[in-house]
Write a protein that binds this DNA or RNA. Structure first.
Lengths: 223, 223
DNA sequence: AGAATAGTGTCTGTCAGACAGTATCGC
DNA sequence: GCGATACTGTCTGACAGACACTATTCT
């Protein structure tokens, strides 16, 4: 009788999203060990009760130790459980959704894992290990819902510290996978307390200068 | 070193909602054993990997064995975890939200547990064991959001098989804790495919007869 | 001048809230 | 007729989508 017949294995997995060239991407890692060695998967790891204060802390630790990244936002999506989803035995994976500002994407150290890839979120292009394909789909669905159905909720955790309204709109479009009307988008944001205008700070280029904004202090994506 | 220093204890807890006299209620049980003996809590139990196909099945089993009830709807809310929340050690509770049609409330066998109570959902009136007070608040928040923000989603799992639009409106009002305009409510429902009119079936009384409806076959509350 | 992007004004259809009005039952 | 409830019609304000328009910069 395996231990996991009495105690389930508990994992945390993270769907870490960011924006690369105006496209929503998710971070995939290539597994270095069996089971599913060399298979593509969401970054994750086993819960260590002696180290982790709770499941969210475990997810934070996994991101920090495995791919050396600190994320500003981490939120539970749901669990995946059962006897069949992992060959090691009865297991639970608690899935988290994380957002990384797109100016931090290149900060990932590439030598810690044998392979990292920022895959297109809606079409990663790899068959994925375990049930991580479903996990990705569920996390993506939650992210889209956040931006769509509860309308004033903004994906500010994906933005760099200072950003223009156009950049924010591009990010929302990348998440939703469709274009948004500029006037309507800006009209909704007029009354948002989550955005703070930075007076005098403009982004220049070969066009009219654009007002820069930052996220309100203490802004949280959560509902 | 306790086992729970290496393996977390895994529980499932259920916030089971129904309607009693036009008021949203939640089922509380009084604990028969330590820890927290005689404290009020949400019904729950420990995961049994050798019996349970997954966490949702575990929640179904707990409701069936502890309070002899089969619920038509069960949905994961989120997890609660950490070393401090249960004196037995590092633990995870996976919270589920369940809905029971209000004509089934009295079917509960009262002799199986030493005490059951249908408490007002927004003010249960007991100090609750562990973190079950927070769990209840989170489940209630999710339920309200489902009815409020994604508007065409209906709490049909709380209704008996045949019901009037007025009864459905009362149920929504009980969940939201505020009144809804009748005309607006019915206008939204006009195009809903989730409701099926029962031609010729009317509820009679000392007033104009009211059309009866049922939920569409295969209706699911989930988003 | 022309390209490119920032930012705004306006029209229109949809829809929710509010509220009044009509219809149909039992007594 | 009267009370009670079912159900509908209409007005109005808010707002999203669509689209055109002006403004500002660099080349």
């Amino acid at each position: 009788m395996k231990k996991s017949d009495l105690f389930p294995l508990v994992f945390v997995d993270v769907a870490l999203f960011s924006i690369v060239s105006d496209c929503l991407r998710v971070l995939l890692v290539r597994r270095a060990q069996d089971p599913n060695r060399r298979g593509w998967a969401l970054p994750g790891g086993i819960l260590k009760p002696e180290m982790d204060a709770d499941l969210k802390s475990a997810a934070t630790r996994v991101l920090r130790t495995k791919i050396s990244v600190e994320v500003p936002h981490l939120e539970e999506v749901r669990t995946f459980s059962g006897v069949d989803r992992d060959p090691r035995g009865w297991s639970i994976s608690v899935l988290f959704c994380a957002l990384l500002p797109y100016d931090k994407v290149n900060a990932l150290v590439k030598d810690k894992v044998e392979a990292l890839e920022w895959a297109a979120a809606d079409n990663p292009g790899h068959r994925m290990a375990f049930d991580h394909g479903e996990q990705l789909a569920v996390a993506l669905h939650m992210l889209r819902d956040r931006v769509r159905v509860t309308r004033p909720v903004l994906p500010l955790h994906l933005m760099p510290e200072r950003f223009t309204l156009t950049a924010l709109q591009k990010t929302c479009e990348a998440i939703l996978g469709k274009e948004i009307d500029k006037a309507a988008f800006r009209r909704r944001l007029k009354d948002s307390t989550d955005l703070v205008e930075l007076p005098g700070e403009l982004q220049r280029g070969s066009h009219a200068p654009a007002q820069l904004f930052r996220a309100r202090d203490g802004f949280e994506f959560a509902v």
